[in-house]
């Protein structure tokens, strides 16, 4: 999936993944897609909750060998 911006939070612990994601998404235009990489085991639940609360859209996510990838569209 093509993302407009990639935010790499691999190795960082809570709350850094969502703090970095928020910083990045603030600078984006509506409709753009952000891809977030994370190795934080709580990040699936964190991102689901964060995306719905901030009224954006989680288009897709995947997990491979403990590495999470999230695609978020800014609404």
């Amino acid at each position: 999936m093509k993302a407009d911006i990639i935010v790499d939070t691999k190795g960082l612990a809570c709350p850094m993944p969502i703090v970095k994601a928020r910083k990045a998404i603030t600078a984006m235009k509506t409709g753009q897609v952000m891809e977030v990489l994370s190795t934080d085991k709580g990040s699936l639940n964190d991102f689901r909750a964060w995306v719905s609360q901030t009224k954006n859209e989680l288009i897709a996510h995947e997990e491979q060998n403990g590495e999470y990838r999230f695609w978020v569209r800014k609404l």
């Binding site: 809570c14 709350p15 969502i18 703090v19 994601a21 928020r22 964060w50 609360q53 901030t54």
Partner: peptide
């Protein structure tokens, strides 16, 4: 940590 998370929650 909660404060920073909440700030990221706008």
């Amino acid at each position: 940590i909660i404060a920073n998370g909440a700030a990221a929650y706008e």
